[in-house]
Amino acid sequence: MMAAEAGSARNTLLAYRSDLEKADADIAAGIGAADSDALKALAQHWSGLSSATVARRSAALRRFYAFLFEEGLREDDPSAALPKPRLQRRLPRILAPDEVERMLARAEERAGSGKPLALRNLALIELLYGSGMRASELCSLPRLALSRRNQPFLILRGKGDKERLVPISDRARDAVDRWIEHCPEGKWLFPGGKAHLSRVRLFQLVREMAADAGIAPDRVSPHVLRHAFATHLLSGGADLRALQALLGHADIATTQIYTHVDSDRLVELVNSRHPLARGN
């Protein structure tokens, strides 16, 4: 159902399978036959887990029991008895614009040597920060994704198998053009091993580039650069709905987290634009 009807991505399917298997191991009768008492007892089994992990496993089980009930495989849905931890949504880690600029400048300096791997790294970081792509989307870009000259955007099939338009900056386009001259022949724009560059390797490369620019590596990851893309766009006046489309968020509530990150700009906006602001 999740693959065929919901169109869930492979990583989502693997995560749900893992959570269901772990829950099944904690219930003597198995998750298929579990009753409300068995689900209540999971709170004790999961007492040592983080609130986020408990919430994720409970969400997987709720979807599982809803499916069984809707398909007539169970006469009841016992998921109301599942643990319900309170979650406080954490603000995303971000980098200041000058820190990102330092990383880009250092990557550009390295690329000046003309070494293929340095050119590849520059293309990676320019695309990450210049488009807000997810790590998995970037790693799996086809070699011909930017084959057309002056192509200002990509059409990506991202999370949930949904298509979205991703604009490509002139800087990123230039970096890709320089890299493609040295890119090994094959299917992928960023090849690695027997397929494309892995997300783990991309994570390592981004941290290496951060350290090279004098930034603490533990503060930086591909996802942090995606957050920086979003936050810096919002600071520049981007519309929240436009940002939702650029990031590929199904729910605008996910995008709204950036309004908390950029609270200083929002306060300044009220003080300068509101009709009752002092001086107006």
Score class of each variant (00 low, 15 high):
Leu197Asp: 03
Val176Leu: 15
Glu181Gly: 08
Gly158Asn: 08
Asp26Tyr: 00
Ser272Gln: 12
Leu240Glu: 05
Leu117Asn: 14
His260Cys: 06
Leu14Asn: 08
Arg265Lys: 15
Asp161Asn: 15
Arg86Val: 11
Ser140Asp: 10
Arg17Thr: 12
Ala25Leu: 00
Pro97Cys: 00
Asp212Arg: 15
His223Ser: 01
Val220Asn: 03
Trp188Ser: 10
Asp77Leu: 08
Ala9Arg: 01
Gln151Asn: 04
Pro275Ile: 13
Leu240Arg: 04
Leu87Phe: 07
Arg120Glu: 02
Asp212Val: 10
Arg89Glu: 04
Leu49Met: 14
Leu104Ser: 08
Thr255Ala: 13
Glu126Leu: 02
Arg273Pro: 14
Ala277Trp: 02
Ala230Lys: 04
Ala213Gln: 11
Met133Ser: 06
Leu240His: 11
Gly160Asn: 02
Gly237Arg: 13
Pro116Gln: 04
Glu185Phe: 01
Leu127Phe: 08
Arg120Tyr: 01
Ser8Glu: 01
Ile94Val: 06
Phe153Asn: 15
Ala3His: 10
Leu127Gln: 05
Ala216Leu: 08
Leu91Ala: 09
Leu95Arg: 06
Val206Met: 02
Arg17Lys: 12
Leu156Val: 15
Ala81Glu: 01
His232Ile: 02
Arg74Pro: 00
Gly112Ser: 02
Gly7Asp: 03
Asn11His: 07
Lys22Trp: 01
Gln151Met: 11
His227Trp: 07
Asn11Trp: 03
Asp174Tyr: 11
Asp98His: 10
His45Ile: 08
Cys183Ser: 12
Ile155Thr: 02
His223Lys: 02
Glu101Pro: 04
Glu21Trp: 05
Ala25Val: 00
Arg157Cys: 15
Lys194Thr: 13
Met133Leu: 04
Ala213Thr: 12
Pro142Tyr: 11
Leu61Pro: 06
Ala210His: 09
Ala33Cys: 10
Gly132Asn: 07
Gly214Leu: 11
Gly186Phe: 11
Ala250Arg: 13
Pro78Trp: 06
Arg149Trp: 13
Leu73Phe: 06
Ser140Arg: 11
Ala123Trp: 01
Ile125Cys: 03
Asn271Arg: 11
Arg157His: 14
Leu13Ala: 05
Pro275Arg: 09
Met209Trp: 08
Ala29Val: 15
Asn150Thr: 07
Pro217Ser: 07
Gly186Lys: 10
Pro217Cys: 03
Thr259Leu: 07
Asp212Ile: 14
Gly112Trp: 00
Pro85Met: 07
Ser169Gln: 08
Glu99Tyr: 09
Ala105Thr: 11
Leu146Thr: 06
